[in-house]
Design a protein around this nucleic acid. Sequence first.
DNA 1: AATGAATGAGAGTTCATTCAT
DNA 2: AATGAATGAACTCTCATTCAT
Lengths: 197, 197, 197, 197
Amino acid sequence: MSLASAREETSRSEKRRQELVAAAFDQIAEHGFEGLRTRDVADAVGVNIATLHYYFPTKEALIGGVLEHAMARFRSTLAPHGSPSTQLLNHLRSVRKLMADEPELGIVMGELALRSARDRSIEKIFNQTRDAWQSAMKGLLRRGVREGNLREELDSDAVATLVIAVLTSLTIPPLRDSPRGDQALRQLERWLGIGGR
Amino acid sequence: MSLASAREETSRSEKRRQELVAAAFDQIAEHGFEGLRTRDVADAVGVNIATLHYYFPTKEALIGGVLEHAMARFRSTLAPHGSPSTQLLNHLRSVRKLMADEPELGIVMGELALRSARDRSIEKIFNQTRDAWQSAMKGLLRRGVREGNLREELDSDAVATLVIAVLTSLTIPPLRDSPRGDQALRQLERWLGIGGR
Amino acid sequence: MSLASAREETSRSEKRRQELVAAAFDQIAEHGFEGLRTRDVADAVGVNIATLHYYFPTKEALIGGVLEHAMARFRSTLAPHGSPSTQLLNHLRSVRKLMADEPELGIVMGELALRSARDRSIEKIFNQTRDAWQSAMKGLLRRGVREGNLREELDSDAVATLVIAVLTSLTIPPLRDSPRGDQALRQLERWLGIGGR
Amino acid sequence: MSLASAREETSRSEKRRQELVAAAFDQIAEHGFEGLRTRDVADAVGVNIATLHYYFPTKEALIGGVLEHAMARFRSTLAPHGSPSTQLLNHLRSVRKLMADEPELGIVMGELALRSARDRSIEKIFNQTRDAWQSAMKGLLRRGVREGNLREELDSDAVATLVIAVLTSLTIPPLRDSPRGDQALRQLERWLGIGGR
DNA sequence: AATGAATGAGAGTTCATTCAT
DNA sequence: AATGAATGAACTCTCATTCAT
């Protein structure tokens, strides 16, 4: 087998893994963990249930794949550029946009968040992501104050926490779909002194 | 059977219903909807599984009971008195206290919130509660502004939404247990101009 | 419910347990442990597979029931009366008869014996039975020598072991069905000086 | 391809077959037929499961290989030399030694013996081996009597059967590991008038 | 000669629900 | 009002076997 076809082989296999993860993701978004059935996942991809177990030995392993996928999808929103206040504004709006465009991601994150209370491996990854988010946010706020883009009196740590709290609440159904999410964010922007109007 | 014993009979029956609901509530808090088993609920109360079905014909009916119970428990926190800004402060703190003292309620509310995306009957009750909360909050803020306890420029509707968003985020694991919940709330109080310090 | 019907209830339940054990016994006799399927056992009794699990939570528990049953069936052969040499002769012949009349018991004992090498709980019960058998046999031989029914020079312990070895070998297919089993036993009787001819 | 390399190819292929048979043998010894998994066999040899099926089209075929292997291993013990009584003694002791040194062989023979009740092809080979063994033993005894090494009154056929029965019982767990196996054999030697103390 | 990927059939086990008592 | 017994339908996971490469 040539190197090229070996690479092809690898990617074909990896593709199947991702198809399965994507299908599982969709199932969770639609029916919750409560309604996640390995057979439905396999059916959605069009493979036998045994094939699913060939890639993911247990349901738990499949969920692990979904966790990774969701986290990666979410983290990709955190890449910032521009002045601190612009970055902050962009971040708030891109998270909001992400939740509006892909409500499934919000649902799955919510399901994972709840599950993190019962599943150590999920909890660990969740905490890591949250800490990274928190310190990125804090650094952004601090730089904003230093560069004069944000109000002086602002306590970067507490505000970072509050901002994350508000963004997190966007994943919860009552706020996700309604225009209230936008409303809450705009008020936050006002208090932060960014975003105009 | 005398009227008295009939009433007794009824209340004894009602007590059993509530025991079952409480046990189901605990199960959901500990294992999520994913891990809710009617048999475990019956065992926890010490009755036969068939007895549970005598009181709640289906699992859904039992979950309905839990929903009612959780909502009632939560709404009881919303009864305020004192000046608007004091009321607001009290409300923020009592919700925070409730989440700290009874984390199970937060978990179950979270589980129900997620389920509301899939279950019309839950969604309906959730929306009602949210709307009642929102308009109570809005009224409070408006009165606060009118009476001079709160800043003039405050847009009562947007702020009400934001406050509810922050309070809601307290039910989510990453914020529930850590001191960050308090941190976020204190920052919110500062922005609202209540709570001193 | 009256005491009588309670007793009836108990025995009806016990009866079902025994039906299931008997069916499992038959399956093992016919197909070995290798071919033991809980579904077939349930079908043989005419109940749903879930009913089987109502009585025996796991397959292992069912096998435990079969073990008990087989052992009890076997031990019932050990009840002796008459003079020692008569008892000994009776014992040899009744074990042989048991194996000839109920070859299934021999097969199942063989399957259990092999499994005892891998399963501590089976091993334990097997060893107990063997020890009880060994000491009963030894006592019988010793009394036989003392009462003059058996040769003086006989080493009761070694002979007891040998007798048990020969009887045990009767459960193994090559000796079980053929007339060779009888032949071996008759030779043993001759050496023991019992059984005439 | 030259003749030499063709032969090499064949023998390399034969070697792989034997590796697989040996691995299957070990699996049966450790887990019984009940726990024999073709995948484990392939893994033990370090080849893909599909490779196993290249050499043995079905699991039955693999078991056939194990049967042959076990029988060959066992028959090799039956080659005797010396005077009849010495040969007999050697035979008893070498069988005992074989069982003590390689208990796996005993286990696998036991598993095969049980399976012979259900599998015609195993039964056939088992009967052949047993018959060969029986007539070799009988001839040995007859010659022993003729040459004055063994007691006159001895019925060679019955005694041969008995000896084989005792040796067979050595493969069964309760007698295999304990010192009782030796005890039984020594008593047998005493009755045969060979081996002395 | 060897492999990765895939599968059909079936394994033991679970669970909400029912029903006679 | 309460129970023991029973069940249908499903669930996750397993295994011998196949096939394209």
